[in-house]
Each structure stands twice: as structure tokens, then as C-alpha cells.
Write a protein that binds this DNA or RNA. Structure first.
Lengths: 197, 197
DNA sequence: TGGCGCTATTGAACAATTGTCAATAGACTC
DNA sequence: GAGTCTATTGACAATTGTTCAATAGCGCCA
């Protein structure tokens, strides 16, 4: 299958090709189940090329996670117009649909990122922090929620809940429709914030 | 330091020694940052002994996680007497105190378990499922919460939220006292369940 | 007390994988 | 069509997980 003649691409093309392939392969395997050997063979290139582009297995995984995180962030961008709460709902809907569509990949990357080294966790953390930031900057004038450390703490935890909720719902919807799920997600945030002293 | 004369222990003693050491070492390193070499050297035994007792690195990690999970479950056992809600609060308090006391170890093991293979995830899942089960079997007569798939789904997600909440609170309490934290945790569960359609 | 047997323990050899680097060859320019 | 730049390669070294036959500590019994 792999031609014995090397094909020379531009760095950008090769990079995105490897990243896309990595995302696809990591959807079914975990990071340490994926060897550079397999990756290189699947891509039709040599092992050495992986190190040339990403510096190593770790760097490669970071690049894949960062790529997916950017994609997620872009796909959950709220619309520019509309009521603050409507825009939040649109953003959440985008998140849910993204996770549902990319279930396996999302699961694998999140697991790998949270269990990985500091660089990987940083990507995960900053991405979710950026998503949370929309809750405060969504509407410059009207503040949807007060911006206090306690509220931020609770929102962080609420995000963890939403992640688990969506993934578990994918496995067994428990009789809840997509709209029910969205309703629970959006309604639970103010409900939890209300429990703060 | 390590004597060149081998010391022969009973299987039980050796096993618990290695498990305790593993738990301690895994608190600061992640699983794939911990080599069998280091572990064996630190324990003063040979590499081969690890394989004799645990069958391999994976089996060793599973044993450590299972050990810690049993410990956690035992420490969060609710008192036999008292009102249902009081007993639930006691159980939750036990969980929070355990996580706070064993922060690093808890973090590391949970990360490793959720990112690991099926066996590891099974230990994590069954442990938390057993913890959740107390919410229904706490009081045989009076049902604290209705036992429906949707409620179980939400409780599962609530557990994820609590885990994140406690760990993030450890890093920066955000002006919340331990009692405030416990209050938010206990109050948020019914609040979230109320959002179900 | 001293030899014996059981088995906990060892260490060397093996396998798989990651990482390194000088040499190679494809594509573009003149 | 020759030359240059650099994307790409393949062989080599290092680390780490795993296996297994050989070794030796400890209790038991004469």
C-alpha cells in the first residue's frame, strides 16, 4: 500500500494530515496504546518525521489536543446577536452537539489530557476557562451572574458536571430527550449558584 | 542503603508494603512516570518480584487503586443510626475530609483510573456507584429520592461535580469555609434533581 | 542443633517502543 | 537540465516492560 517512493508535502499540509490522522486514531485507542510506529505506518511516513514535526510523542499529543480544543471552542461560539441567556443556550447547545457527534474522540482526548502532564492539563484548563468566560463577558452591560470567586468555583464544578452528564447521557439517555438534557443543563447552573451562602 | 542480603517476608506483608509504597509514590508521579525500576529500587526488591505479586505494571496499579477505593469506601461509611439526611451528610463529610487529607494521592489515582483501561475504570465506576447506592438504601422505609433512571443519571453527574468542586476548593477556597462547601454540596443535589422535567 | 524442603526472591536475557541524527532525495528555481 | 533547499528517511542507541530458570531465606522436623 505505502509506496516506496517518498512524497514530499509542504509543512502545513503534512502537519494537518498528521493531526487529523492522530485525532482519528486516538478516538479508538488511548495515548499509550498508540505507538509512533503505528501512526507513522498509517500515515505512510517514517517514524523520524513525527519527531521532526512534533518533537516527540508528547508534543504530538499536545498538538492534537490543542487542535481539537480550538475546534471545540470555535464550534461553541455564541451568536453575536440576541439575548444573553439565548446566546448562552446556543453555546451550550453547540457544546452538547459537538460532544454527541464526536463522542469517542472527545472522551479519549479529555481522558488523555486530564491524566497527562502539565502542558496537556493546561490546554484543557484554559479551554474550559475560556468557555466559562463567556458567561461573564456574554453581555457587557447586564451581568448574568455576579463575578465572584465562589461563583467561578461553582461554574467550574458545573462544567465538570455537564461533561459527565452529556457523556453518560450518550451511553443511556435515561428517557431524556436532547431538549430535556439541555433544559437540565441550563436550569441547573442558576439552581446551584443559588445554594451559595 | 539496600542491603545486598535479600529479606524474605510473608506474601501478605510484602504485598501491603508494596501497595503502600505504590500509593505514596503515585501521589507525586503519574502512572507512566513511575517505572518498575524506581518502584523496585525504592522498595529494596528486584523488578521480578513486582511481576510475581501483581503480574505486571497494570495489575500493580489496579491493586493500588482498588486498595485506595476500598479505603475510601470504608471511611465514608455513614453511621448506622440517625436520620437519613443526617447520615448522608456524614457520608459526604467523610468524603470531603478524605479527599482533603489525601489530596495528591486522590488526584493522581483518579486521573490514572479514569484514563486507564477497562479494568481500572471499572474499579472507579463501581466504587462511585456503590457510594451513590447509599442515597437509595440509606433508609429502607423513607425514600430520600425517587429511584428512576433520570435521577440516577443526575446523581452520577452530581458526583462528578462534587469531585471537581472539592479538588478545586482545595486549590483555592474562594472564601468558602469547609462548612460552606458541605452546605453547597448537600443543597445542590436536590436543587439539580428539581430541574428534571 | 543441624539438615531439609518449600517458596519467596533474584538477575540476566528478551521484546517492544521511544528518541536521535547524519544521510538521502523530491520539488522548485535559474 | 543542473543546482539548491529542506522535507524525509532509516539505521542506531537508550529506556522500559516482561519472562523465567536459578537462587537462597526461613520454618519444620529429626
Amino acid at each position: 500500500m505505502t509506496a516506496n517512493t517518498r512524497t514530499r508535502l509542504s509543512p502545513d499540509e503534512r502537519r494537518t494530515q498528521l493531526l487529523d490522522l492522530g485525532f482519528r486514531l486516538l478516538a479508538t485507542r488511548s495515548l499509550d496504546e498508540l505507538s509512533i510506529d503505528l501512526l507513522a505506518e498509517e500515515a505512510g511516513v517514517s517514524r523520524g518525521l513525527m519527531y521532526h514535526y512534533f518533537g516527540g510523542k508528547q508534543g504530538f499529543f499536545e498538538a492534537v489536543v490543542q487542535h481539537a480544543a480550538d475546534d471545540l471552542y470555535a464550534r461553541t461560539a455564541p451568536p453575536a446577536e440576541g439575548e444573553p441567556l439565548e446566546r448562552l443556550l446556543a453555546s451550550i447547545t453547540g457544546y452538547v452537539d459537538y460532544v454527541v457527534a464526536n463522542q469517542a474522540g472527545y472522551r479519549s482526548l479529555v481522558k488523555g489530557a486530564t491524566a497527562g502532564n502539565d502542558s496537556l492539563r493546561a490546554i484543557y484548563d484554559t479551554t474550559f476557562a475560556a468557555l466559562a468566560e463567556r458567561f461573564f463577558t456574554a453581555d457587557p452591560g447586564g451581568d448574568v451572574f455576579p463575578d465572584t470567586p465562589a461563583v467561578r468555583l461553582v461554574i467550574h464544578a458545573w462544567q465538570a458536571m455537564v461533561e459527565d452528564l452529556v457523556l453518560t447521557w450518550c451511553d443511556s439517555p435515561a428517557g431524556l430527550s436532547r431538549e430535556d438534557l439541555l433544559s437540565v443543563i441550563t436550569a441547573s447552573l442558576p439552581a446551584i449558584i443559588d445554594t451559595l451562602p
